[in-house]
Amino acid sequence: MKAYEKVIEKLLLICAVTATLSVILITIFIFKEGISVLSDYGMINFIFGTKWSPTNGNYGILPLIAGSLSVTIGALVIGIPTGIACAVFLSEVAHKKTAKILKSAVELLAGIPSVVYGFFGLSVLVPAIRQFILPIIQLFNEDASTSGFSILAGAIILAIMILPTIVSISENAISSVPIEYKEASLALGANRQETITRILVPAAKSGIISSIILGMGRAIGETMAVILITGNMPKVPGGMLDSVATLTGTIAMEMGYATPEHQKALFAVGIVLFIIIMLLNLFANFTLHRLGGQAND
């Protein structure tokens, strides 16, 4: 009887390490495929090369990094204030019923597949930018032109996509601030708004920051929405209305027809993406755990 229980425990352990083994396997295989390009082409040339043109053997991913960063930063600029406002609304301002509506809305936003966001952006946002935003820009700069496939379109869609991440983690962080903080602040004569902006949000800082970092990771890693609306032009962008290609989009677009050498380069792009995401996640984890420490003090 005892032996049989031991065997089961070992079996369960094997299941439990599957996820970790998967991570190791993924790391090994992505690096194995991509590392040769990194070493042959040169790390510096690869990362800081300004020309991505695989058909001519030019594998400089600076334009792709710039593309990913620009849409991500745009998404954060739109998504952070909106997300924190929604989190505050849910945890401090709204009545129970209204909060429930917003909460299910945010959950549904999280459930919509990314390709649907991309399709929405493609059929609504891209033409809207061409028709409405461009004329406004042209008032100030007559040379401005855009196809609508732009950083702006990507940033808006990504902002919507990272909203659920920011809202749910920030709301959790704000709600878990000890009630004494709030009581003390109110007792000292601060009103509700002051209590929120000067006590609750600062006290929930590390949770909010880690929600933002996780949102950033999601934005950088997002593929299908971005691929449909940013135009996929591997050039370092000059403005919000320029087309860009992102790290993820380039991999997904070119994998289907790539030559073996080109494929290896795409795996090398994958390595860069993988490292960026890992660092962001580690950082988010670190800040979140610090929050846990604070709450226990």
Binding site: T20, L21, I24, I26, T223, M255, G270
Partner: peptide
């Protein structure tokens, strides 16, 4: 703690990386 952490890491990997891995593996 390590295998718990590994599980968390797996959750954070973007889908295109899974795609690349699935393709080569």
């Amino acid at each position: 703690k390590t295998i718990r952490f590994g599980t968390e890491v797996l959750a954070g990997i973007p889908s295109i990386i899974f795609g690349l891995f699935g393709f080569t593996f």
